[in-house]
C-alpha cells in the first residue's frame, strides 16, 4: 500500500497528465458522437449571447452586398406592380399578375423601373444636378424620371455611355406637376433656388382648402407615375397679386442623403407625345 502511494507521489505529474488527457478524450468521444445536449445547453447559453453580439459586427461587412441584393429584388418587384400597366380599355377589368413566365401584359406596360446608383450630387447650388452611374448602354434615355426611396427626385437631362445627369427637383427650371392628395387640385412644383429643404407649389387657387401638413403627390399628367410622394405642405402663403396660393413644400426626399434611385421609363410616352404634337401642327 505504501508502495502504491510512493508510486503515485513519484509519478503524480505524469498521472495527472494522463488522467486529464484521458478525460479530454472521454469528453471528445462522449459528447461529440453521442449526446452533446448537456454541454451544449450551457455553452450555448453563455457563448450564444457573445456570438449574437459579434454577429452584429460581422453583419456590417456584408451590409453592402445585402443592400445591393435587396435593391435588385425591389427592382424586380417594382416592375411587377399592377399600376405599371395601363390598358387603353379600362373596362377589360383589373389587371392580375399570374405566374406565367412569358410577360403577356407587356403590351400594356406603361412604366419600367431601373435601379441606379448616385455617384455625384449637389444641393447648395441654384441649379442642382445628380449624376447616376447608369447611362445609354444601360438603357437610360433623356426624359426619363427619377425617384428615390422616399419620393420624387428629378428628370434625366443628358446621358453618356455609362452615366446620366439628372435635373433634380432643386433646379430652377424644374417643373413637376403635383396634386394635393386631399382635394385633388393640380399645381406646379418649382424651386426658387434658395433653401434646398423647401420647394414651391404654384397654381393652387385661393378657394382650395389647404393646410400645413397636407400631402402632395404626382399628378397623372406628369411624366412620373401618378400618386408618388412629392412632399408635405409646410406653409400656405396667399399671393397678393394673383388669385393663387404659394405653398411652401417640404420634399419627401432628403436630397443631401440620396444614394440609390430608380429611373422610370414611360413606355407609352412617345405615342402620346406624337399625337399631341400632331394636334399642335393642325
Amino acid at each position: 500500500m505504501r508502495n502504491l502511494f510512493a508510486f503515485i507521489r513519484r509519478y503524480f505529474i505524469l498521472l495527472l497528465f494522463l488522467s486529464l488527457e484521458i478525460y479530454s478524450f472521454y469528453l471528445l468521444f462522449r459528447y461529440n458522437q453521442f449526446h452533446r445536449a448537456a454541454y451544449m445547453d450551457v455553452a450555448g447559453e453563455w457563448t450564444g449571447k457573445l456570438e449574437a453580439k459579434a454577429q452584429q459586427f460581422t453583419l456590417y461587412f456584408s451590409l453592402k452586398k445585402e443592400n445591393e441584393a435587396l435593391r435588385h429584388r425591389l427592382n424586380i418587384l417594382q416592375n411587377q406592380l399592377s399600376q405599371n400597366f395601363q390598358a387603353p380599355d379600362t373596362t377589360a377589368g383589373t389587371l392580375a399578375l399570374d405566374t406565367i413566365r412569358i410577360d403577356t401584359l407587356s403590351q400594356f406596360r406603361k412604366y419600367r423601373y431601373r435601379e441606379a446608383t448616385v455617384v455625384n450630387n449637389s444641393v447648395n447650388l441654384p441649379n442642382n444636378f445628380i449624376t447616376l452611374h447608369r447611362g445609354r448602354l444601360q438603357e437610360i434615355e433623356p426624359g426619363m424620371v427619377v425617384i428615390g426611396p422616399s419620393g420624387v427626385v428629378g428628370v434625366v437631362l443628358d446621358v453618356s455611355d455609362n452615366f446620366a445627369t439628372v435635373m433634380s427637383m432643386l433646379h430652377r427650371q424644374s417643373r413637376i406637376s403635383g396634386r394635393l392628395k386631399k382635394t385633388g387640385e393640380m399645381g406646379r412644383i418649382e424651386w426658387d433656388g434658395a433653401d434646398p429643404r423647401i420647394v414651391q407649389m404654384k397654381d393652387i387657387s385661393k378657394g382650395t382648402q389647404v393646410k400645413p401638413g397636407d400631402t402632395i403627390l404626382t399628378s397623372q399628367y406628369s411624366d412620373f407615375p401618378a400618386n408618388l410622394m412629392i412632399g408635405t405642405v409646410q406653409k400656405v402663403i396667399a399671393e397678393k397679386s394673383s388669385n393663387n396660393f404659394l405653398l411652401q413644400v417640404k420634399p419627401a426626399t432628403d436630397f443631401s442623403k440620396i444614394q440609390n434611385v430608380f429611373v422610370i421609363e414611360n413606355l407609352q410616352r412617345a405615342e402620346q407625345e406624337e399625337l399631341e404634337n400632331r394636334n399642335k401642327e393642325k
Binding site: 486529464l20 488527457e21 479530454s24 478524450f25 469528453l27 471528445l28 459528447y31 461529440n32 455553452a43
Partner: peptide, 15 residues
C-alpha cells in the same frame, strides 16, 4: 472548446 462546441478537442492538445 466552450466556444467552438467541441468538448475535449482543444483541452487534449493543451494538456
Amino acid at each position: 472548446d466552450f466556444f467552438t462546441k467541441t468538448p475535449g478537442m482543444h483541452a487534449a492538445a493543451m494538456v
